[in-house]
Design a protein around this nucleic acid. Structure first.
Length: 471
DNA sequence: CTAGGGTTAG
């Protein structure tokens, strides 16, 4: 009996029959009968097409990020405007705050990058309904413009705010300025910077930092330093974010020698600037990256000692940068030495091994990365989900399905939870079926059910080909 | 809204 798998998610039926015993059928069963917590919100959204917010206020259901994603997913195709309005409304729900992750998720689900006009349409809707839009709500829209990387729409919303007599604040300007900088529209970002005082707004550290970053990225170091003078003149004392940005520019467009001199200068910041402008972990990581980019990984390594001299400990980002650079230059021994020397002091040894394995993997040295991975398992170090997934995926792609399966089993035996990418489960399962390792496939499915592994329809569609396995 | 960047989950 053929099984249709492509449409089983999100059935509206809430009366679930008894779960079947057979593992794969159980798995598909749970995919089919999981309920939709977002249903209440969707019902109220669809009731009236306008004044959506009032209806939503009446909903008593709990609002969480999963629920928001589901609502947006349902709005995406037919009613993206409704989705945007829901998202703006949800930003002020007393029991919830949007994280930056939620902004990017919303942007993806509503396809705002391709259709930024939806944002403008929503503003027009608000206006047509006489809805009083607050600055806070506009800022949610501006942040959506940022996620959609649409400078044009950001500028449009900023102008519209004034038109609706909803005066933008410094943060509103900052969002649009960063957006312009990210799009390489430096002149316009500086135009907005100059416009701010005319609106009684004071550019702050973030404002200057954004434009300075733009100038640095464009290689205009003098311009950037000029702006540092300007901000000082306005009583805005540069902090290490500003100086690290400049240092990054110097490393990219000047020279490492100049970069090191600039770092020297930062280490001797005058007392009145307090600690704010002193080099921190990011500053040192920036110069390490500078050396790495010039193919001088060993010199980068030596910066670690200078950090410790300044009583700063390298963090995860510092190590990722350094280890990745060393591996790219084939200096595996040196990288391993860094891991063994610094592991456990600030960053755990297992995390450093994960970086090592992933760097090797990314550098295309799959054999070495697999060996390193097995070494770390043997030493009782816990692999991250990303590391384990990458290694197993690599093995499966090489056609060594059983090797991949046994490695997976070994990771299972560790006793601590490793979050394997659903995609890896999917391809392991498919390949095991394909090669007729049905016992292994069966036990894998058992683990998937136990783990509540959620697959997207596209990830198990191909399993429909293995009907013999299902019966 | 905040510099360097592949943890996690959201």
């Amino acid at each position: 009996m053929p099984i249709s798998i492509s449409f089983i998610r999100r059935s509206s039926s809430l009366i679930a029959p008894r779960a079947p015993d057979f593992p794969l059928k159980r798995f598909l069963f749970f995919s089919k009968y999981s309920s939709i917590p977002a249903q209440d919100f969707l019902t109220h959204l669809q009731k009236h097409q306008s004044h959506v917010e009032k209806n939503l206020d009446a909903v008593k259901s709990n609002l969480d990020s999963q629920c928001i994603s589901q609502v947006l997913e349902h709005c995406a195709i037919e009613k993206p405007k409704l989705g945007v309005r829901f998202f703006v409304w949800a930003a002020f729900h007393p029991s919830h705050r949007h994280t930056s992750y939620m902004y990017s998720k919303a942007c993806k689900l509503l396809n705002l990058e391709k259709n930024p006009r939806i944002i403008a349409d929503v503003v027009d809707e608000y206006r047509a309904e006489g809805f009083a839009v607050s600055v806070k709500m506009f800022k949610v829209l501006l942040n959506l413009c940022r996620e959609a990387r649409c400078a044009e729409m950001g500028l449009w919303v900023l102008r519209k705010m004034k038109e609706l007599r909803c005066m933008p604040d410094t943060v509103s300007y900052n969002v649009v300025i960063r957006l312009l900088v990210a799009n390489g529209r430096l002149d316009e970002s500086m135009g907005l910077l100059k416009e701010m005082p005319l609106c009684d707004l004071t550019p702050d550290m973030v404002t200057y930092g954004s434009v300075i970053k733009g100038l640095c990225d464009a290689g205009d170091l003098e311009g950037a330093l000029g702006l540092v003078k300007v901000m000082k003149g306005h009583g805005c004392v540069p902090n290490s974010v500003i100086y690290s940005t400049i240092l990054d520019g110097i490393c990219m467009h000047g020279s490492l020698k100049l970069g090191l001199e600039f770092l020297d200068g930062m280490e001797k910041v005058e007392e009145k600037e307090k600690d704010e402008g002193r080099p921190n972990v990011v500053t040192y990581t920036t110069i390490i990256k500078g050396f790495i980019d010039k193919g001088m990984a060993s010199e980068a390594r030596s910066i670690l000692d200078r950090m410790y001299d300044s009583e700063l400990k390298p963090n995860r980002v510092t190590f990722v940068t350094l280890i990745d650079g060393l591996i790219k230059e084939g200096k595996v021994e040196e990288a391993l030495k860094v891991v063994d020397t610094f592991g456990g002091d600030g960053v755990r040894t297992d995390e450093l091994y994960n970086m090592l394995v992933l760097s090797l993997f990314r550098a295309g040295k799959h054999k070495e990365s697999e060996e390193m991975f097995r070494t770390m398992l043997a030493r009782g170090l816990k692999p991250s989900g990303l590391t384990a997934s990458s290694i197993i995926r690599g093995i499966v792609l090489e056609g060594r399905v059983l090797d991949g399966y046994f490695l997976f089993q070994e990771i299972e035996k560790l006793g601590s939870f490793v979050s394997i990418d659903p995609d890896v489960y999917s391809s392991l399962l498919a390949c095991l079926c394909q090669e007729n390792h049905l016992a292994e496939a069966g036990s894998l499915v058992n683990i998937m059910v136990e783990r509540r592994v959620h697959l997207e329809p596209s990830q198990y569609e191909h399993l429909a080909n293995f009907r013999s396995f299902l019966n």
